[in-house]
Nucleic acid binder design. Structure first.
Length: 831
RNA sequence: GCGAAAGUGGCGGAGUUGGUAGACGCGCUGGAUUUAGGAUCCAGUUCCGUAAGGAGUGGGGGUUCGAAUCCCCCCUUUCGCACCA
């Protein structure tokens, strides 16, 4: 490329960025239409932001990916919806506010203003007219409305039970918010507490949440796998054991009914309700009570750890195996999970390793009922661990000899016929605990009336406003319970005295439907207009971090399916394509966090290098799905490219105003011209594919090559010269929007480059005049030869045999065969 | 422990899905220009070797004319689930 004058081509990023941001805003370039054409819409969604300060590099990465896609779709002629909003309720805001002695609302709104300003300064193409904020009444009114719809269908309900309790935050947590036995937010060890709480019956949707994953080819496999495992469906049977002297029947769930004759004990979890009804005799009662007490105090992690020795106590009661009438001891053991199956297991030491170690410890008999095959037998006295694989049943009456699936279904069918059991599917997924004993959340719109029970607040009274209170310190029960003017109301049904539910909702409820509110952000009559929803949905691309794989990304599918069932949306899944970008770490590989003090703000980068260079640097440093160890060295290369190569191209225009829809007649071009024209078209093809795959790093590399090869001194044809420059600007525009707009304007256009269409490559010009063929002898590269692009195999062979280096390796040898791969390689096999 | 993904120069990473390994960039080396530069330009840069040549994509085997790519075994790293009966 010709050297350019330095002084004139200086790119004053501060001025230029501001200029274009103001223009975009004035033109409403990013305002999506209310109702697009169904087959020409593109809904680009990024995860909305939890405003806990200014945005960091990870957010920046997330949002520029979304932005580049949105802008490219716009250039492709799509009607693009690219909205943004704030996930503004939640614990961290409350915690920060308490620390600072201000109100969470104040803290939150302040952060929102800072973050919004940063995003606007970064030139992200959001349609700000659709901004949503989940802590504002005009939004949470509809969160409450959603709750009520679920309540009316019996999918929101209260129940008493042992729940995860964070002693630090003094609130309950959903399963998904307990990580490694600790509170996800404050890392305090979570304990169990017996409480009445609100739940969403997400388990009703377990099957569909699993099955419909197969309808999502645009979702990454790892996320789908994680969701499948989290929901954890397993097929098996429930078999009823009677408990002697209690009149109680105790069903157990098993995936191995073929081991039913091997049961030598039964164990129930310390939390199991049936324990209270067993009338355990005095000599055992104290031990059982002590054990129960101890188990409840242990954290999940202690209980669940694989190396914790299993223990338990005998209750003095016996259970009866309905298949053979055998009496087996009934134990309480905390390796039995209360929340899974029936909270009881049949103990088969010979064929389950947990039961095996438990039985070994307490001298419980081990009875073999499965053999590895017809010829191998197991001796219980010699077994060092359970035999858990399938095999023929033995010691099992009429079932002897049956194996595997056949055995399982034979036993299950027999049980069903006799009324002592049934086929059963179980899930690890539990109902979603959504009530929180905290202030800063969406109030639960329910009134508790002594006469009418739980009464939903009528739509006309929504929203139930979160009262402005001064004291919102957590103290173990909802702070709202201490606000009499909030709590005390009259019942909507009977007019009697009643009380509001004092709890607020988990923030993940607010974020389960925000993508729908964007479609109709200012609708005061409905959460959103159905027609708008059916037209805009599903989301075409959802970009966010992987961290939400088993939380938000299940919840929002659940909500969407529920809304589908009650007729508010007409597609079964909310997002057809999901992309998880990699995290941004500091240069030593640590997660950036405020407490570690290693957070790099995108604003620092932007102030120093400008938005476009900052974006290019982030894009170029690694493929989007990979983790990035951020280092400012990354900027150097792309900055040189943008400032010294790309931008100065605009000065090389010859004002020929080429037709951008036109392809050149390659025969009429000089050899040099043809070469660069081919390079251009190859680049157009490659960059388009890279944008489709969100591989921005290679898109930039391709543009670097194109710009490097572009030498106006070799191009006599002014139209071709300008054509190449203009196409290059278009290709770079989604990643470097301000610079591209400025260059586009310098080229004499008055309309935005994002309205200029997307380049199509000339299919007749992606292969050059000549091509290089690799010549191998016995698979080893010996030379490369240059032949005309359309050369026949014979021509290639002739040329290959002329090569001195090839000759040297085939001399005196016999040619066995030649393999020719068109346009690539010729392999000569000799002996 | 179970499951998934991945291992390519000093570094970030390419590699057309079985066909010239190391594109593009950083860094480094040498040179040019400059009063000077952490500016710009040119050249070089996987390793061994002056060269011819040889080796080479975590290690070992295999399939193939040809393997980073496919198959088997092993090692390492990351992530997810972690007593789910």
């Amino acid at each position: 490329m010709a050297t350019t004058q330095k002084t004139h081509s200086k790119y004053d990023f501060k001025r230029i960025e501001q200029k274009w941001q103001e223009r975009w805003d004035k033109q409403g370039l990013f305002c999506a239409p209310e109702l697009p054409d169904k087959d020409n819409k593109f809904y680009m969604l990024v995860m909305f932001l939890y405003p806990s300060g200014d945005i960091h590099m990870g957010h920046f990465r997330n949002y520029i990916i979304g932005d580049a896609v949105a802008r490219r779709q716009m250039m492709l002629g799509k009607q693009v919806l690219h909205p943004f909003g704030w996930d503004a309720f939640g614990l961290p805001a409350e915690r920060a506010a308490i620390q600072r002695g201000i109100h969470p609302k104040e803290w939150t709104l302040e952060n929102i203003n800072v973050s919004r300003a940063t995003l606007q300064k970064a030139g992200i193409s959001y349609d700000w007219s659709r901004e949503v904020n989940s802590c504002m009444p005009d939004y949470y009114k509809w969160t409450q409305w959603m709750f009520i719809q679920l309540f009316k269908k019996g999918l929101a309900y209260r129940k008493r039970g042992y729940v995860n309790w964070c002693p630090e935050d003094k609130t309950v947590l959903a399963n998904e918010q307990v990580v490694d036995g600790k509170c996800e937010r404050c890392e305090t060890r979570v304990v169990k507490k017996d409480q009445i709480q609100w739940y969403f019956r997400i388990t009703d949707y377990a099957d569909r949440l699993i099955d419909d994953l197969d309808r999502l080819p645009g979702w990454p496999d790892n996320v789908k796998t994680m969701q499948r495992e989290w929901i954890g469906r397993s097929h098996g049977a429930e078999i009823d054991f009677a408990i002697e002297h209690s009149g109680e029947k105790l069903p157990v769930f098993t995936t191995r009914p073929d081991t039913i004759y091997g049961v030598t004990f039964m164990a129930i979890s310390p939390e199991a309700e049936i324990l209270d009804r067993l009338n355990v005799e005095r000599e055992y009662a104290r031990k059982v009570a002590e054990y129960k007490q101890k188990a409840l105090l242990r954290t999940d992690i202690e209980r669940a750890s694989a190396d914790t020795e299993k223990d338990g106590v005998f209750t003095g009661r016996y259970a009866v195996n309905p298949f053979n009438g055998e009496r087996v001891q009934l134990w309480v053991a905390d390796y039995v999970l209360a929340g899974y199956g029936t909270g009881a297991v049949m103990g088969v030491p010979a064929h389950d390793s947990r039961d095996f170690s438990f039985a070994k410890k307490y001298g419980i008999p081990i009875k073999v009922v499965i053999h590895p095959d017809d010829h191998t037998t197991l001796n219980p006295n010699e077994m060092r661990d359970a035999y858990v694989d399938y095999g023929p049943m033995v010691n099992s009456d009429q079932f002897d000899g049956l194996a595997g699936e056949k055995a399982v279904s034979a036993v299950t069918e027999y049980a069903a016929k006799r009324g002592i059991g049934r086929r059963k599917v179980n899930y690890k997924l539990k109902d979603w605990l959504i009530s929180r004993q905290r202030y800063w959340g969406c109030p639960i719109p329910i009134i508790h009336c002594p006469k009418c029970g739980e009464v939903a607040v009528p739509d006309s009274d929504l929203p139930v406003l979160l009262p402005e209170v001064k004291n919102f310190q957590p103290k173990g029960r909802s702070p709202l319970a201490d606000v009499p003017e909030y709590i005390n109301v009259t019942c909507h049904q009977c007019g009697g005295e009643a009380q509001r539910d004092p709890d607020t909702m988990d923030t993940f409820v607010c974020s389960s439907w925000y993508f729908l509110r964007y479609l109709d952000a200012h609708n005061e009559r409905e959460p959103f207009d159905k027609k708008k929803a059916t037209t805009w949905l599903p989301v075409d691309l959802y970009v966010g971090g992987i961290t939400h794989a088993t939380g938000h990304l299940i919840y929002f599918r659940f909500f969407h399916k529920f809304l589908y069932d009650i007729g508010w949306v007409d597609c079964a899944e909310p997002a057809s394509r999901l992309f998880n970008h990699g995290m941004v770490m500091d240069s030593s590989g640590e997660v950036m966090s405020k407490s570690k003090g290693n957070v790099v703000s995108p604003m620092t980068l932007i102030d120093e290098h400008g938005v476009d260079v900052s974006r290019l640097a982030m894009f170029f440093t690694a493929p989007s799905e990979k983790e990035v160890l951020w280092s400012s060295e990354t900027v150097t290369g792309v900055e040189k490219f943008a400032m010294n190569r790309l931008y100065p191209m605009a000065k090389l225009l010859r004002d020929s105003q080429p037709n951008l829809k036109h392809y050149f007649n390659v025969a009429a071009l000089s050899a040099d011209e043809r070469a660069i024209y081919v390079k251009l078209n190859q680049t157009i093809k490659k960059v388009a594919e890279n944008y489709d795959d969100l591989q921005f790093n290679t898109a930039i590399a391709a543009l670097m090559e194109l710009v490097r090869d572009f030498d106006p001194a070799k191009i006599a044809n002014a139209e071709l010269n300008d054509y190449i420059i203009l196409k290059t600007i278009q290709l770079a525009a989604p990643m470097a929007p301000h610079m591209a707009e400025e260059m586009w304007e310098m080229a004499g256009f008055h309309q935005s480059v994002f309205k200029s269409g997307w380049p199509e490559y000339d299919p007749a010009a992606i292969v050059g005049d000549t091509i290089e063929i690799a010549v191998q002898v016995n698979g080893k590269l010996r030379d490369t030869i240059r032949v005309p692009a359309n050369a026949s195999q014979e021509t290639v062979e002739v040329a290959a045999f002329e090569s001195a280096r090839v000759k040297a390796h085939i001399e005196g040898k016999q040619i066995v065969k030649q393999i020719y791969v068109k346009g690539r390689i010729l392999n000569i096999v000799v002996r």
